[in-house]
């Protein structure tokens, strides 16, 4: 056994001071830490006593404290926005007992390639609220790309706007228990049979995630009756590493088919 030390701060200030210590990490739900070699860690800062279980809704904006679990967020979003893309992504993620344990903050801080929520958070243009050295509010994409933001800082909440857009989420798995090889998220704003805007992201690619800008441009202001779904399939131009499950080219083809099916489903439902 190593000399792992546990800390139990009662305030965010205490917690952010503690994580500046060498090799000391925050512990939220803890499921990601179980995958790490604890021999290399000196201490864990338990965040469970911090006031980070809150939900705030103001007009069209919702904010969740970072210690809300997946299950907490599912139950809260179900009551206010059943079409929400984060809700759809979370409902298919992991399983019931894990969703009771994994926190939204811990999940974003860890953000593995198989993450089920990163795509949803990106298309929602989620803002990450940080305390500590990099105190402030940052767009999710900036947080993911800039590792310096993660140093000596703690995610205390997330914030995004609710919308009336139609949504679709697809995770590529072999069995229900699998972590996905890739994940597709789609948001469409449809009015009077015309797609006004769309937001489409595929995660799990070699770039970690890719926006489908070409498809978004193709769909913009397009009448739903003249969408060529085979064209959408061909427009999916992403690279997969092939490290998970299968051949990268097969995954690309499959992503095209599933994305096209997803858009077709949303258009039919509108």
């Amino acid at each position: 056994m190593n000399n792992l030390k546990w800390y139990f701060p009662k305030t965010i200030k205490e917690a952010t001071d503690l994580i500046t210590k060498e090799k000391v990490l925050p512990h939220a739900g803890g499921t990601a830490l179980l995958l790490r070699n604890l021999e290399k860690i000196n201490g864990l800062v338990n965040l469970s006593d911090l006031p980070l279980y809150y939900t705030k809704k103001e007009d069209n904006t919702i904010e969740f404290g970072s210690m809300n679990t997946y299950a907490d967020i599912i139950s809260k979003l179900k009551k206010i926005d059943t079409e929400n893309i984060l809700l759809k992504s979370l409902q298919n993620s992991a399983d019931t007992p894990l969703r009771n344990r994994i926190t939204i903050g811990g999940s974003i801080a860890f953000a593995p390639p198989w993450s089920d929520i990163i795509g949803a958070l990106i298309v929602l243009d989620t803002k990450i609220i940080l305390s500590g050295k990099n105190e402030g509010v940052f767009p999710i994409e900036e947080y993911l790309k800039n590792n310096k933001l993660k140093q000596d800082s703690l995610i205390t909440g997330i914030r995004f706007n609710l919308s009336k857009w139609k949504t679709f989420s697809y995770r590529n798995i072999r069995t229900k228990k699998d972590m996905p090889a890739f994940h597709i998220v789609v948001m469409l704003q449809i009015e009077n049979d015309i797609i006004l805007e769309s937001k489409i992201v595929i995660t799990g690619t070699v770039n970690r995630y890719d926006w489908m800008k070409e498809i978004e441009n193709y769909l913009k202001s397009r009448e739903i009756d003249i969408i060529e779904f085979s064209k959408i399939e061909e427009m999916v131009d992403v690279k997969f590493s092939g490290k998970r499950f299968t051949d990268p080219e097969y995954s690309r083809k499959l992503a095209g088919i599933e994305l096209s099916r997803g858009i077709k489903k949303l258009v039919r439902e509108s």
């Binding site: 512990h27 803890g30 179980l34 864990l44 338990n46 469970s48 019931t96 007992p97």
Partner: peptide, 11 residues
């Protein structure tokens, strides 16, 4: 319901 194998006792 949670998996007790996925939880540090100290936490």
């Amino acid at each position: 319901p949670v998996h007790s194998c996925q939880i540090f006792t100290a936490s």
